[in-house]
Nucleic acid binder design. Structure first.
Lengths: 243, 243
DNA sequence: GCCCCGACTTAACATTTGTTGGGTGCGCCG
DNA sequence: CGGCGCACCCAACAAATGTTAAGTCGGGGC
């Protein structure tokens, strides 16, 4: 079933993180959706738009970003299959950042009206989604810590460990490798440093035998050193329904 | 009425930002609450706790913060009267950061159970609060931009302009002055720089005649220069129900 | 198969920010 | 009323990060 593949990563996540009920998920899967494909660097949503749908990432990676007056860009979050990066537009009209496809992406669009009707009918669905947006917020707060306080090296390590954790939930980690389709410039924009500096840090990590990043794929070489750098405490991901 | 004073800043904000209905607000005001006072630097919530109430800031300032392994602290958000800084615990049990009173504070505690019952009964209340947490998240995203991309000077200007905007909603700005009861060290922790550097920036701004910060009070000296530095675009605050 | 473009890589130098350590002033407590 | 502690303030130096400018590499289009 196409539908199965479409909803699978989201349902997987909701089941493990919220203990979602089968009925709520079935009701969700019954919603009408529109699939669309996006290519590398294509904008899905632009700052200022007022979308009438929420989108679900079925496959591929997207990022939220903001560009300030002098042209500098900050990446705010990285989104992977199963994420709903603009649920917030259920409650306010205007997007306040860009949403850009990093790689070839498949997105499923779900109309606000259908979603709101379903939530009115099944409060459990609303609670699941509200929770989802709250975890999204918790991830943003950790992102602030990352950019504000950690050394650039730890920052990159933390970003990588968090993403791996989230990708694992979506079944997208194989052994010690996973996709990270950001250029060094984009990684820099995520960390608040320049691409030149990102390159320095990556070289250091490579030489230190911690990890390698080649053609959009990360390979962890030394898990222990990586953990030591990242000091990752995943409680903010609230992976279990009771946490 | 005590109750009036307690709910006033929240209701004020909800009315202008969400167009909240009178009935929903009355139902809220009927909830049982417990008022508690906190002193400077006193923890309201600690990382790891599982609170059974949500709190409303009635008076005073609080900050969310996280401390990392090496002892460095990042301030994640500044909260003012009318804010509900831990609504997220309605949907997950564990607090993943600290909440600390910056100054003498009055907080109103509302039990999760009472709040959930009310939301089940009146979906409009749930929608209001969901929206509130989404704006909170939008503020966190802008905070990432601030820490990641703006020069320290612009960063401070932006923080000040944002806070002034939010304080205005709560009726807490008088002429060109308002309270900012953070020490230079705390301001630094909010911006991701050291207290020494914060001091440098404040001196520069004072010498340039942009603003003064004395004993927890900001005075704007040159609105035009301030705006030029801050490049503030308040759309992310979603101040009107239709935005 | 060649060329061209974008990503990566690096070095030298400039600028920003952190560190250290020492001062000043004010409010609070004994 | 005196001193003690904390915030503020500042300068000299150290370290991290940005800027600029070149050169390498590899994959896709002609």
């Amino acid at each position: 079933m196409t539908t199965d593949k479409t909803w699978a990563p989201l349902f997987e996540r909701l089941r493990t993180t919220t203990g979602a009920g089968q009925e709520d998920l079935q009701a969700l899967a019954a919603l009408p959706i529109a699939l669309r494909h996006y290519g590398e660097n294509q904008a899905v949503l632009r700052d200022g738009e007022q979308p009438s749908d929420c989108c679900l990432i079925v496959d591929g990676f997207c990022v939220r970003s903001k560009t300030i007056a002098d042209g500098k860009r900050q990446i705010l979050s990285i989104h992977i299959p199963g994420d709903l990066p603009n649920l917030q537009n259920l409650h306010y009209a205007t997007v306040d950042h860009d949403l850009v496809a990093l790689s070839d992406c498949t997105l499923a669009f779900i109309g606000h009206k259908a979603l709101k009707d379903l939530i009115a009918q099944r409060p459990g669905v609303g609670n699941m989604f509200w929770r989802d947006t709250l975890v999204d917020a918790a991830i943003s707060r950790e992102w602030i810590v990352n950019v504000g306080q950690r050394s650039t090296t730890s920052r990159l390590a933390h970003l990588i460990v968090e993403l791996r954790e989230r990708l694992r939930l979506a079944g997208r980690v194989i052994d010690d490798m996973f996709a990270l389709p950001l250029t060094q410039e984009q990684l820099g924009e995520a960390m608040g440093v320049t691409s030149v500096h990102t390159n320095r840090i990556l070289r250091d990590l490579r030489i230190a035998g911690v990890l390698e990043l080649q053609r959009g794929t990360v390979r962890i070489l030394n898990e222990h050193k990586l953990q030591e750098l990242a000091q990752f405490d995943g409680r903010y991901l609230h992976l279990s329904p009771s946490s």
